[in-house]
Write a protein that binds this DNA or RNA. Structure first.
Lengths: 248, 248
DNA sequence: GATAGATAGTGTATAAGTTACACTTAATTT
DNA sequence: AAATTAAGTGTAACTTATACACTATCTATC
């Protein structure tokens, strides 16, 4: 049983990425505050999903807890990517106003640990209904208003994801269990903001023996149905080589 | 001016790596505690160099402060690599004893942010004299007794370093301004625990136009003197390509 | 039921990069 | 003068990356 006594100076924030077969999205909370008397909108922006950690709770566990509360899902890819501790993290007028609203008279110094979560977009869409949480295209984040240093955290998460995706097969976490090669290619293109030659991409994938073709095919699509593939982490772990690419 | 009021639940720990042209080393503090009456050695192990952050101090600034205090050096490579927040970070008898010794009646929950520092070994050796801080070969860490979760933190730092070194030219931070290609090769071999073919290694380096030969040569060595080279970050930044190695 | 529209799926030639491998050179020490 | 030590150099075989265009198979529409 977890005590609900929080560690005052530490929080975790989850940057949850999803892919809808078209573009990369990020899950954000809509933050709104209206003046009680006039009804005037004082704050209308977005935050990441985060919270304090409990006294008797590991950092990772706190991130898992938040993720579970939000999506109802377990066993998601979740990994720490950075800690954020600038002194001016909570400095804007809106943020100060918000803290007052939630009964924090003044802001403690809070260091937050950023977690990166990857999820097949289509798995959570239903669970979100009714909550003030939505998918937003990553590309639009730059034009959105965000609380605290959360925009910065999203950028850093994206950077970390792009780096990691080039070196480890974690992109598959953003796809359902079965996927087509075109979906996989679109995913990499969305992740890296690049575009690849179809034949060369497929040649490359076919060398990865842990991307395994299934007997299943698409159904009901108005074109030649694509074959489904599966990512096998087991095969990956068995066959992975420790390439040293930058040097020799 | 920095207040000396600390943030109670947060610290930074620096894992400082150095290279002595032979092997990779890490800078550790010798921790010793003797029984006041009997003189019996109660604790004799090693810790990382770390400390709490101050209320009005950025995380990075705290790490820089610690590094400066310890080595007297500025402008070192320093980068966050992970945060550590396991609940049982401070659980051993020795650690409890130590906390009592330094007048902490009980251990607060402390989340520490790990920083990775790289330094040319030879630059600091002198500055250390008299302090209870020493270079230890990284390979020997596994057999050493270490405080708290510091051994784990060293391992994670090394992992992060090995990953990063394959993708970015940060290894040069471990060498003096001028270095020979053999030194560079030894460094990569020490970092990655691998060994490379001399000719192929040099061919690779010669393609990196940011590793620039100087007119200087070694002197007083009992063999053919080697040419000195220089790493130019400027040239690197200008010419770097965004390779996508894992996928296409 | 024929046709249009949409995406899936496939091969080859050239260029670039990686690998494996052994001897000569230039300094100091004996 | 000879021995010792590490520096410095080229090539051929193999592997990987790149550029590029058409056919196949399904649904929807007329």
């Amino acid at each position: 049983m977890i005590s609900h006594k929080i560690v005052p100076n530490v929080s975790v924030d989850c940057v949850i990425f999803g892919f809808d077969f078209e573009k990369l999205n990020v899950l954000l909370v809509d933050r709104e505050l209206k003046d009680e008397k006039t009804g005037k909108v004082l704050i209308n922006d977005h935050t990441l999903t985060g919270y304090h950690i409990y006294e008797d709770e590991d950092l990772d566990a706190a991130a898992y807890r938040i993720l579970k509360e939000l999506t109802g899902l377990d066993n998601l890819f979740l990994e720490q990517f950075a800690a954020f501790g600038q002194i001016d993290r909570v400095s804007s007028e809106k943020d100060q106003l918000w803290l007052k609203h939630i009964n924090k008279e003044f802001a403690d110094r809070i260091i937050t640990v950023g977690y990166l979560a990857l999820i097949d977009n289509t798995r959570v869409t239903l669970k979100l209904s009714g909550k003030n949480v939505q998918w937003y295209p990553v590309n639009e984040v730059k034009d959105m208003e965000m609380a605290f240093d959360h925009k910065h955290i999203v950028y850093k998460a994206l950077e970390a994801l792009q780096k990691k995706v080039k070196v480890e097969p974690i992109a598959f976490e953003l796809l359902p269990d079965y996927f087509t090669l075109s979906q996989l290619q679109k995913l990499y293109e969305a992740l890296l903001g690049a575009s690849f030659d179809k034949r060369n991409f497929r040649k490359k994938i076919s060398q990865m023996h842990y991307v395994i073709p299934l007997k299943k095919k698409q159904k009901g699509v108005p074109h030649k149905p694509a074959q489904y593939y599966l990512f096998s982490r087991e095969v990956y772990e068995k066959t992975k080589k420790n390439r040293i690419s930058f040097i020799v």
